[in-house]
């Protein structure tokens, strides 16, 4: 510390401000780089027509439908388990060995790389349970993957519901189930929904785990047992194999717009939730 404190203060402030501004500029650069080339491709036809010639021409409708279906399966499966686990951890037990193990499992699930989820989903759902490359295999794999996200956000939402709500419910003769469903759940609901929405975001963005479990068929899926190709996988294949850069940019643009919309919705819900509980 040879620098005079006041000089050090100036230097540190300058570095921290400039690095932070650079990070934001970098994000803008990445996003606009995709959007500038992709937005012109995003026409009504592009969104409503099926891809033809393995994506060289046509639109991306079947990949949009596949993404929706995989995400829907994942959310429908992960939500009850995630929210249930969060309720168990917050409402039914004190901190103990058991909660420690459950928390450790959730944190570990959050840390496992997506490609390992892909391996697992492939050997377990596709091969062992004989579901084949299908929407169901992809959706179930994603369900396990987003479970920790839903648990963590639901837990936070439940914990921030004031204690008094529960006490009032119990004092009025409500039992545990009534207290949870009628006193705690309604006020924790926006927070829980925000967690589910973030889970949707992860499903939409995921590539490695989905390509190994849902496959990469471009056909319009007709049932949960059909193989399919999600938008992120489609983008990857288009870009990597150089099939159609124009359509790759278009797909990426739609992905970024969806993620942006998801983040904004989740933030709005969380803010409303905070405003309500304070």
């Amino acid at each position: 510390m040879l620098m005079r404190p006041k000089t050090a203060e100036k230097v540190a402030q300058t570095i921290i401000w400039s690095v932070s501004i650079l990070v934001v500029l970098l994000l803008f650069f990445i996003v606009s780089f995709i959007l500038i080339k992709g937005v012109p491709t995003l026409t009504w036809d592009f969104l409503t027509q099926n891809p033809t010639q393995s994506g060289r021409s046509g639109g991306i409708l079947s990949t949009i439908v596949s993404t929706l279906m995989v995400t829907l399966v994942a959310i429908l499966v992960a939500t009850p388990f995630g929210v249930g686990t969060a309720f168990y951890l917050t409402e039914f037990t004190y901190e103990s060995k058991v909660t420690k193990i459950i928390r450790f499992s959730a944190e570990s699930l959050a840390a496992i790389p997506s490609i390992v989820y892909g391996l697992f989903g492939f050997i377990f759902f596709v091969i062992y349970l004989k579901l084949g490359w299908s929407i169901l295999s992809g959706g179930l794999t994603m369900a396990v993957m987003i479970l920790p996200t839903i648990i963590r956000t639901s837990e936070e939402a439940i914990l921030s519901v004031p204690r008094a709500y529960r006490e009032v419910s119990f004092s009025l003769g409500g039992n545990k189930w009534q207290t949870i469903t009628r006193a705690v759940l309604p006020s924790a609901f926006p927070g829980i929904t925000a967690g589910i929405i973030l889970g949707i975001g992860r499903c939409v963005a995921e590539t490695a785990a989905v390509i190994l479990t849902a496959g990469s068929s471009l056909h319009m899926p007709e049932s949960l047992f059909d193989p399919s190709r999600t938008m992120a996988v489609h983008f990857y294949i288009l870009a990597r194999e150089g099939i159609s850069m124009e359509r790759a940019y278009g797909t990426a643009t739609l992905l970024i717009i969806i993620i942006l919309g998801i983040n904004l919705t989740a933030n709005m819900l969380v803010n409303r939730f905070i405003a309500k509980t304070r």
């Binding site: 932070s20 990070v23 934001v24 994000l27 990445i30 996003v31 780089f33 995709i34 975001g201 939409v204 963005a205 995921e206 590539t207 490695a208 992120a232 983008f235 990857y236 870009a239 790759a248 990426a252 992905l255 970024i256 993620i259 942006l260 998801i262 983040n263 904004l264 933030n267």
Partner: peptide
Amino acid sequence: MRSAIQLLAGIPSVVYGFWGL
């Protein structure tokens, strides 16, 4: 800036790869 970083976290990894490429 928090929303910007949230977006950074949400962008699909394939998009980063493509940008890098």
